[in-house]
Design a protein around this nucleic acid. Structure first.
Lengths: 335, 335
DNA sequence: GCTCCGGATGTTAACGCTAACAAAAATGAT
DNA sequence: ATCATTTTTGTTAGCGTTAACATCCGGAGC
């Protein structure tokens, strides 16, 4: 391909056609230094004629800048991480950066370190780690101080800037909402223990119950999947006086709804259910789901902002928090 | 950052520490040419000591290879495109390529051309366009012949290799399944007209009805969202003798289920519903959804394969088809 | 008309790496 | 020991670009 004998035209080729030196061409392209309008026009014409495209490797070699950022992403279709990625890509593109991704199937100390190393070999100028895991956060503890890395949604203790959604606050909102409806207590189907978000949501839920002085039921552990929510729902349906359940995410809430429907337990009449994330489908569940919305695009945007700040020498300990919003729908509606 | 005065160590620095020439270091790193074990050990130690990392720009400049592929992705959380991206990234990483993404918010001739140009400036060695749109396919008609571009899921007429899931066949399977249950006919809630997948699914549905000699009802047009499925469901529920509906994707099917539930129409007793995609949640809808599964990871893998083939000088007109699978669940179950 | 100035252009030298060839050291055969 | 190999190492050049400095040119000021 392309190796059809012809190599890409270079600055010098353009210069030859335009009858100027290669430096003049460089100046026209980069807008550095003064060039007579007439000369500029000739150069532009030559560029057009040859289909010249600057060689980014040569440019990177001499300037030391590649204009590329790396993102370590969890390989998953989970709504949150995927949306965050787009938010980041968007902000980066607007600022003239390209995004190179390195995905990780299972988050772990070494896999994340590998991905980071991988990206550094690609000569990215900075790295964003989408690290919702406890282990991911821990991997960042070893992040080099001389290279800009920021994390989204994890690693509170890590010596890198972190941006996250206030999961605890979201969980608090959902729990208070359920309590305000007069329920004795609220059950919780939590996400996997090694996810920070799962921990924080559980914490927010627990704190709220304690603050209100109500009994804290045992946590039911899920894995974010609808299947695990379904199983949780089946065991919950066997409980006697069940009245409200807060699911760690919308997928699990869907599983709950399914299990309750099968067990003949009506939502919201017999039990009220709330979720977390506000996936686009949540409004069309049966019944429509009350949930906590996270603005992932905003998260992506602010993450990028934090990274550029850090690349400019900003603080390693910067933190940013995005506040989630409670969306009330029928699953916690009137009976 | 990093500009702390110290520049990254170079081959020459390593050579100095190891007491050899820079070429010997290069040979150790790349495994080209013979090096005495003892020398290799000294070099390796020096690399370790200095924390040397090869400069990819310099390497790319001299070899003409960047080890990077570009992906033009539609900026969306749609299950299919997102999954495909991961499949591609996976296959690429295994083969030692990095992936740079350039997302497109609205697919159009020029936006896709821009994204491609953008990636070429990043000096990617090949480009994959995830182009489920009609316009995207059209944009590819102008794809340069001297640069390897492949498309996934679109642009049948484009002069680039294309890999796609056999949408028509999937639609046929779903429609036949519904007809086999004894329904008089099958309604269809289609995706947006400018999506190739929507067209093909509609075509497969129509063909099947015609082949069976049954009436072809008017198509109801949606936009992939649950909301549009919901609206379609509301108008369908008003119809008299409704008996089976094939939705263009699972999200719209969810909207249908919701609308039917509200209208007191029972699925599958009063009406049977099938979807397309098999999103992970489909098994937990109320009722669990019969749908057509697409193996997106496989699609990603084969797309990468087609690209490498094309980079090696392969045919511009290669085609690959992935066959989908019907998953039967309660939404088309016994009454 | 001559100098001086600043805008416009050109020249040269890196950047860090690999390809290609050259040289030296080690090995084996005689 | 000597020469022909073979293995191992070194030297040089150049990839395409920008930074830094050098040069040229036309007009203003005297």
């Amino acid at each position: 391909m392309n190796a059809a004998g012809t190599r890409q035209p270079s600055l010098t080729d353009v210069a030859g056609v335009a009858g100027v030196s290669h430096m003049t061409v460089s100046r026209v392209i980069n807008g550095t230094g003064p060039v007579r309008p007439e000369t500029r026009a000739r150069v532009l014409a030559a560029i057009e004629e040859l289909g010249y495209r600057p060689n980014s490797a040569a440019r990177a070699l001499v300037t030391g800048r590649t204009g590329t950022l790396g993102v370590v992403a969890l390989e998953s279709n989970l709504y949150g991480p995927a949306s965050t990625l787009y938010g980041i890509e968007n902000a980066a593109r607007e600022a003239g950066y390209a995004i190179t991704i390195s995905s990780v199937s299972r988050p772990g100390r070494s896999s994340i370190a590998d991905a980071v190393e991988n990206l550094r070999r690609q000569a990215v100028e900075g790295i964003i780690v989408i690290a919702p895991h406890v282990t991911a956060g821990r991997a960042l503890e070893a992040a080099p101080a001389d290279f800009p890395v920021v994390a989204v949604g994890g690693g509170e203790a890590a010596p890198v800037p972190v941006i996250s959604v206030d999961q605890r606050d979201g969980a608090r909102r959902a729990t208070e909402h359920l309590l305000a409806l007069g329920h004795r207590t609220v059950w919780h189907v939590a996400g996997p223990e090694d996810w920070l978000e799962a921990r924080d949501r559980e914490l927010g839920w627990r704190e709220t119950l304690e603050r209100h002085g109500v009994d804290v039921p045992e946590v039911i552990r899920g894995d974010w999947s609808s299947r695990s929510g379904y199983e949780a729902g089946r065991s919950l349906a066997k409980e006697g006086d069940l009245d409200a359940v807060f699911a760690g995410n919308d997928q699990m809430a869907l599983g709950l709804l399914r299990a309750f429907a099968e067990a003949g337990v009506s939502v919201p009449r017999d039990v009220r259910v709330a979720g977390f994330d506000d996936v686009p489908e949540a409004a069309y569940f049966t019944p429509p789901l009350t949930t906590v919305r996270q603005d992932f695009i905003e998260v992506g945007r602010r993450t990028f902002g934090l990274l550029t700040q850090r690349m400019g020498g900003g603080d390693r300990h910067a933190r940013a928090l995005v506040v989630p919003e409670l969306i009330v729908r029928e699953s916690t509606g009137p009976r």
